[in-house]
């Protein structure tokens, strides 16, 4: 009697596990379907029921992507933008986080509130005046115009501050007594000690900048400076390109982010727990 109950309970758990896993997989169908379709040769792309025979898969769509434009160039642009912008984010936010966490100075609370409230206003809302600021600076049609404006983020500053607060004061005190300058303490103690937070901020901002669409859209208008996202979006807008090619392009464009995400997954989780918004 009792053993039967236990058995039923165990079976219930297995069923529950199975259903839960199924929910996870079903949730991913919209992306998985796009990737799956990217591998279909044109003759099978629109058939229903779809072709699940891997022997008929083909890479022709991926070859076609490179005929749509200077794709390696766009990829390089995306890489330049994402890398340099996230480097700036890491430096700016670790310095600001250090100041906010470990110094007591006039206006500390005010500055902190200013940073997290003002930077929470989405750039979307400010796009017109920011566009005009960029125009005055002569940054239109220049990669720098999409690198610099989003580099200060509320999330980055917040995460760095929270982490640096946890670094023991005694350590920094000792360095100060040894005569280390403020910069030296930042450079040789804060930076190495907050490596996990720096990793998290760097990886998060790399994916944000890689994924950016709105800034490239309003700042860049010559093909030379297109990012991957911008050129893909332009192709989706026109109806001249085959769906297979578009999906292969989308698969290529999401690949770096997926690789980064899967390798540094715990950093992303940390970001989501500190309540970060895409910044």
């Amino acid at each position: 009697m009792r053993a039967g109950k236990e058995k039923r309970k165990a079976l219930g758990r297995v069923v529950h596990d199975f259903c839960a896993i199924a929910v996870c997989l079903v949730f991913l169908v919209p992306v998985l379907w796009a990737i799956f379709s990217a591998f279909q040769p044109p003759s099978y792309l629109f058939t229903f029921p779809p072709n699940f025979d891997p022997r008929k898969f083909s890479l022709s769509n991926f070859q076609a992507v490179f005929a749509t434009g200077d794709v390696p160039r766009y990829a390089l642009n995306s890489l330049i933008v994402a890398t340099s912008s996230s480097l700036i984010t890491v430096f700016a936010s670790s310095m600001a986080g250090f100041a906010l966490a470990k110094y007591r100075f006039l206006g500390r609370q005010f500055t902190f509130l200013l940073i997290i409230s003002v930077l929470l206003v989405p750039l979307q809302v400010l796009m017109v005046p920011v566009f005009l600021v960029l125009k005055t600076l002569g940054w239109i049609n220049n990669l720098i115009g999409i690198i610099i404006p989003p580099a200060a983020t509320a999330t980055g500053t917040f995460m760095m501050r929270q982490y640096i607060i946890g670094i023991p004061d005694e350590l920094l005190e000792a360095a100060r007594i040894d005569g280390a300058s403020h910069w030296k303490i930042y450079r040789h103690m804060i930076l190495p000690l907050s490596a996990p937070a720096i990793g998290a901020v760097g990886i998060l901002s790399f994916t944000w900048r890689w994924n950016d669409y709105l800034w490239p859209l309003i700042v860049i208008n010559n093909q030379q400076n297109f990012t991957l996202q911008l050129s893909l979006a332009n192709l989706v807008g026109t109806n001249t390109v085959e769906w297979g090619t578009l999906l292969a392009y989308a698969t290529l464009a999401m690949l770096p982010v997926l690789v980064v995400f899967l390798s540094f997954q715990r950093y992303f989780l940390k970001g989501s727990l500190s309540g970060s918004v895409k910044g």
């Binding site: 991913l28 992306v31 989706v236 578009l246 995400f261």
Partner: peptide, 18 residues
């Protein structure tokens, strides 16, 4: 978490196809 790390362009393309 995967949909959340995808770009708006990729999300829109996937759904447009679906």
């Amino acid at each position: 978490y995967v949909p959340f790390v995808l770009s708006p362009v990729v999300v829109a393309t996937s759904w447009k196809w679906l």
